[in-house]
Design a protein around this nucleic acid. Structure first.
Lengths: 141, 141
DNA sequence: ATTCTTGCAAACGTTTTGCAGGCAC
DNA sequence: GTGCCTGCAAAACGTTTGCAAGAAT
């Protein structure tokens, strides 16, 4: 569990020109604590005790994503996953229970260069999504 | 434009034990013609002239995906993309206009091995999704 | 004749929008 | 005080389900 640094979050918001509100600080703390990709309803569950509305979560998390504080992960085709944007990494995802594990140190540079060399319509790539799907050990046995 | 071989599609369906219906043959022809990942509503547009219901498209395309005739692609977090399952490849996706280009010959074997070596919870991977996002030349200029 | 498939209507879950009141600055 | 944020209500959107009629085998 990483420590929550509200002061840092507040500064981060101020720097961007966003108002520092309780909802935003709470949201950032949730995203920082659970460093795994979470759906909006995952986040909502953790905010049961608060008065923070679902719509406020949607608006702010999407805002954070636009700014880059948060990253979207393409894990399912019917629900958005958001995670705090720390070091670049990808995920292993269990197709049965949904468990997500990070993996780092993946080098996609060569791959992307190769793709661009082949490409007719693109000459640069800004982001990429790489997700590995399988069964986790528990579900496999 | 690949030629549509209805006879082959019919045989494909029969082999699996699915009934050969006009809706299914038409759907397969749409998927085979446009070999790019398409949303359900993309497909629906191409079937405007027919009496094929949206629900029939959902049910059959999902069925095809389960069987493996069709593959899902994780291109957006709010809509499913389906494409005819031919050779293994990935996509370059324009973040502005949505244009999709295929790229082949990507070797992810090492990458996946590396991920599994690191992993605590997984010892095999069945599928993976790799999508590259950027601006196509038209949108970039 | 039997079973599977379809279309229609309705429900469902996620996400977006409009608006008035409230809070940060 | 001004402008941005929030909560509430309602709508929009993609997708799924139930059911009766129809088509494929």
């Amino acid at each position: 569990m990483p420590k929550i640094d509200y002061k840092h979050s507040a500064q981060q918001l101020q720097k961007i020109g966003l108002k520092v509100t309780p909802a935003r600080l709470t949201l950032l703390s949730v995203l920082q604590t659970h460093r795994q990709p979470q759906t909006i309803s995952d986040i909502k569950k953790q905010l049961k005790k608060t008065r923070i509305d679902l719509v406020t979560i949607y608006r702010n998390v999407e805002l954070f994503a636009k700014i880059g504080i948060v990253k979207k992960a393409l894990i399912r085709d019917n629900e958005a996953f958001y995670e705090y944007n720390s070091t670049h990494h990808h995920h292993l995802v269990c197709q049965s229970c949904g468990r997500i594990e990070d993996f780092e140190g993946c080098n996609t540079r060569n791959l992307i260069e190769k793709a661009l060399k082949q490409s007719q319509y693109f000459n640069s790539i800004k982001e990429h999504s790489l997700e590995l799907f399988g069964l986790c050990k528990t579900c496999a046995s």
